[in-house]
Design a protein around this nucleic acid. Structure first.
Length: 301
DNA sequence: AAGGTGCGCAACCGCCGGAGG
DNA sequence: GCCTCCGGCGGTTGCGCACCT
């Protein structure tokens, strides 16, 4: 099926908007309201594509748009939301009053991706090929150096995979989380998302409801995994534990403090696998609550 | 001063899903 | 159920500016 283009590209203006065009668009929307952008483009006398008009209005002309100067609080929120939602810029922008998806996307691609890598747990929703790539990482981890390099490219570079965040950066992220929320990292999975759902409570600022998101691998496994991955029947616990959410290969001599350590004893592996599965199912329920809170419930069904 | 390079950001593009006929 | 329109979204491009040599 051939889709009709959103407008006749021939003869329409492209590129930067002039002040006059902005004024025309503002005046038209003031009188006629938003929507029906094709008609806006035609009737307002703007020689612009309908989508171009919509984009210009939504991103720059709409009242209440904040420009530039992303605060530290906003940056933290972007980072956390991105960790949770991936490249769902519109959703992230929805939690940042006055900010647009385009601005946040640009900010991420130009600033934050360099700082923190491009890890995006749910960024591959729309692209099966990317999902396969992600699955490849989850199943096999990075296979060689080039994989690692590619996966660490900013998302703007067109890659879509799990970023390999260096240990020191992971540590830095964790430190940042701790600094903002005190002992957040000590919250166990049972309480983690219950605490997330309490908004504006206590002396914390408006970001508090998301401040407690830990980036520990158990949480992220729940975030990135599909339902089937919550109970990975096709994979052994051994395989699961060899690669963490950051795609990094762990040595088999993992630190003994991990509750999910792998041993060569099959019995132990099975028991631990069951424990992990139960915890992750519980986590999944909590995630669903959070998804509901963020208007994402459909995503979890 | 001129050319090269990198970066930030506005804008474009193509795909998708919902609504309505 | 099919088709078209419309709006929304995320990825990508390319322009303009600042900085460097």
């Amino acid at each position: 099926m051939v889709r009709r283009p959103c407008c006749d590209k021939q003869g329409t203006n492209k590129g930067a908007w002039s002040a006059e065009e902005d004024e025309v668009l503002i005046n038209y929307v003031k009188i006629h309201g938003e929507g029906k952008w094709r008609r806006v483009a035609q009737n307002a006398g703007l020689n612009r594509c309908a989508k171009s008009c919509r984009l210009r209005w939504l991103n720059y002309l709409r009242p209440g748009i904040k420009r530039g100067d992303i605060t530290e609080e906003e940056e933290d929120l972007i980072i956390r939301l991105h960790r949770l939602l991936g490249n769902r810029w519109a959703l992230i922008a929805g939690r940042l009053p006055g900010r647009t998806d385009n601005e946040i996307k640009n900010y991420w691609n130009t600033t934050l991706a360099k700082k923190y890598g491009s890890f995006s747990p749910r960024s591959c929703v729309r692209k099966p090929n990317s999902e396969q790539k992600m699955l490849h990482y989850q199943n096999h981890g990075p296979t060689n150096n080039s994989d690692r390099i590619n996966a660490n490219q900013p998302s703007g570079a067109g890659t879509c995979g799990i970023a390999i965040i260096p240990q020191e950066e992971k540590h830095c992220l964790e430190e940042k989380s701790i600094g903002l929320v005190g002992n957040s990292c000590s919250i166990d999975n049972q309480d983690l998302f219950s605490s997330l759902l309490v908004r504006d409570e206590g002396a914390e600022d408006h970001l508090s409801f998301l401040m407690s998101i830990d980036i520990n691998k158990d949480f992220m496994t729940g975030v990135t995994g599909s339902d089937s991955q919550l109970c990975p029947s096709n994979r052994t616990a051994h395989e699961d534990n060899n690669y963490d959410i950051f795609g990094e290969l762990h040595n088999n001599n993992l630190t003994s403090s991990s509750p999910f350590d792998v041993t060569s004893d099959d019995q132990v592996v099975k028991v631990e696998s069951k424990v992990m599965c139960d915890q992750q199912l519980s986590l999944h329920v909590e995630l669903k609550k959070l998804a509901s809170f963020l208007d994402l419930e459909d995503e979890w069904n």
